[in-house]
């Protein structure tokens, strides 16, 4: 669906993207990750045609693109419904599909409110839901769950996962919560370069890493075949085959309480970026 070759974008002396080449298929979830300033938003803006590349080519086979981008906003002095209507180009089918997303998310009550009356979380959620309207062939979402309350974030994640089963969805995110909840492809950008392009499941299988934050510090858990590193009340486990359920089971068996079970993908990505910075 999308072919990118030698894509470069410069803002003055800063190179936001440097000679990036990627291909995207007809459907599936593609997660673009990276630190601040890595080039995630620039990549999405370039695909959407909102900014122009300094060099390289982007070939897109469909013109039906939906987008939520940070730094954009709905029209403030209109109601959410009017914004939806405008975004759907007054196409009744697209408008109705947008309404369905609002109903499924339990946010129908927002439709007749003016955008400037909404809380920032509802404003953002409305915009993200509007981006789904008309079911575009390519949906670009820039940090769609950042700043949303947990309930709304869960609903949006649910829509994203469903949508990626039938259409192409490219989303950027600093948080890799999505990567731990879904399968698909992960692309990690660092200083404008692609440092990782892999299937999420494959990555998880190849790099078994889990971070567990304990309720109390001082626990040492020894499991054959598992390396661990303790930092305060956080333990990072590294293992060659999938032993995560065994580790959690063992912690429970020993009566050790943990506050959160870490994101292994997040750990892997952080490791990759760290290595890249050191080189």
């Amino acid at each position: 669906m999308i072919e990118i070759a030698g894509l470069t974008k410069r803002y003055g002396k800063i190179t936001a993207l440097d000679n990036v080449g990627l291909k995207f298929g007809e459907k599936g979830l593609n997660l673009i990750a990276g630190a601040n300033g890595a080039g995630k938003t620039t990549m999405l803006l370039l695909i959407a045609g909102l900014i122009r590349q300094s060099a390289g080519k982007i070939r897109i086979r469909s013109k039906k693109i939906g987008m939520y981008v940070q730094g954009a906003s709905l029209c403030q002095n209109r109601t959410v419904r009017e914004n939806l209507m405008l975004y759907s180009r007054h196409d009744l089918l697209a408008y109705k599909s947008g309404l369905t997303y609002f109903e499924s998310a339990g946010l129908s009550q927002l439709l007749d409110k003016k955008v400037h009356e909404l809380s920032s979380s509802c404003d953002k959620a409305s915009y993200v839901l509007i981006a789904f309207s008309g079911e575009p062939d390519i949906l670009l979402l820039d940090e769609p769950i950042a700043g949303l309350d947990p309930v709304l974030a869960d609903k949006i994640i649910h829509f994203i996962k469903d949508y990626a089963k039938k259409k192409l969805l490219i989303m950027s995110s600093q948080s890799l919560r999505m990567a731990n909840l879904a399968s698909g492809r992960i692309i990690v950008l660092h200083n404008g370069l692609v440092v990782l392009d892999s299937d999420i499941t494959k990555l998880r299988d190849e790099n078994h890493t889990m971070r567990v934050v304990m309720e109390k510090a001082g626990h040492i858990v020894k499991i054959p075949g598992v390396f661990f590193c303790v930092n305060g009340n956080t333990i990072v486990f590294k293992y060659k085959k999938d032993l995560s359920s065994k580790i959690i089971g063992l912690l429970a068996h020993k009566g050790i309480k943990w506050l959160s079970k870490g994101n292994d993908i997040e750990q892997i990505v952080a490791e990759i970026i760290r290595k890249r910075e050191n080189t």
């Binding site: 959407a48 693109i65 939906g66 981008v69 730094g71 029209c75 915009y127």
Partner: peptide
């Protein structure tokens, strides 16, 4: 109208 234009330009 940059913010608003980004919203519109993604569809028009």
């Amino acid at each position: 109208a940059q913010k608003n234009l980004r919203f519109l330009a993604s569809r028009y």
